[in-house]
Simulated assay, not measured.
Amino acid sequence: MNPTADVSAPLHTPVSAPVKVAVIIGSNREGRFGPVVADWLLGLLRERDDYTTEVVDAADAGLPTALSYSPTPEVTAELAKITPKLAAADAIVVLTPEYNHSYPASLKALIDWHYEEWRAKPVGFVSYGGVSGGLRAVEHLRQVFAELHAVTVRDTVSFHNAGASFDDEGRHRDPAAPDAAAKVMLDQLAWWASALREAKAVRPYGS
């Protein structure tokens, strides 16, 4: 042992690669508000050096609700645009509205057409809606992602009466609170993503 060594210094300081996050816009409804919320979130993600971002938009997916073990060539082509983004992601952020106390069918179809792509990955939520702010949709989604072996982070971002929160240019009228909430959620997501990525590098999940 070197008597002059600083025993308080860390032996190794790992350098983590940026977290690859897939941001899912869950609504495909005509006149949807989702892209406005997505633009706000993507702006925050661009300011961080610990994330790289891919967008998966349910409105562009064209996935049917009828699942099949032998999808048609058309469905296979749609999956080819989506599945690699989800497979490559270290983490997921789901943007969801609330329809009839739950989340939209377009989002459920996108989730159900995949399985391995969700396993042992953290999922964060940004929800929007009326009085409830989409929180009931998030609670339903937590159960779904638990079944798929994903880890949902505790803190979420919720926009109550979302339409009134943004101006005509898509800017939030009072961004301090939602920006702070997003930071907490994204910090938790990055921690889980890094921890799970490192764990899976040592031992694949389920082995």
Rank of each mutant, 00 (worst) to 15 (best):
I111T: 01
I111L: 03
S207D: 12
E98Q: 10
A38C: 11
M1E: 10
N2Y: 08
V157N: 00
A88W: 15
V94M: 06
E198M: 14
E147M: 09
R136H: 12
A109C: 09
N100T: 09
R203V: 07
K20L: 09
A182M: 04
T156I: 14
W192C: 05
T152F: 00
G62Y: 00
A201S: 13
V144N: 03
A146Q: 15
V93C: 02
Q188G: 02
V151F: 07
A195F: 13
A180Y: 06
A9E: 12
V7D: 12
E98P: 04
V184R: 07
S106V: 03
G31D: 08
D155W: 05
S165N: 12
T52G: 10
A91I: 03
F125E: 01
P122D: 04
R171F: 14
L67F: 05
Y69R: 14
V131H: 11
K200Y: 14
E98K: 05
A61Q: 07
L148E: 03
H160E: 13
D167Q: 12
L79C: 11
L63M: 06
A38H: 04
A58R: 00
V21D: 02
Y51C: 07
W113V: 02
H172S: 11
R171K: 15
I25L: 14
V36I: 15
D187E: 08
S16M: 10
V56E: 00
A91Y: 00
E54A: 14
S106H: 03
A193R: 00
T156Y: 07
D112A: 04
H12W: 14
S194W: 12
L135S: 07
V93N: 01
V19W: 01
L86I: 10
S165M: 13
T96L: 05
L189E: 00
Y115S: 12
V123Y: 01
W191Y: 10
D168Y: 14
V23R: 00
G170F: 15
V75P: 00
T13W: 13
V126C: 09
E78T: 11
D179N: 13
A146L: 12
I82Q: 02
P97E: 05
L110R: 05
A146V: 11
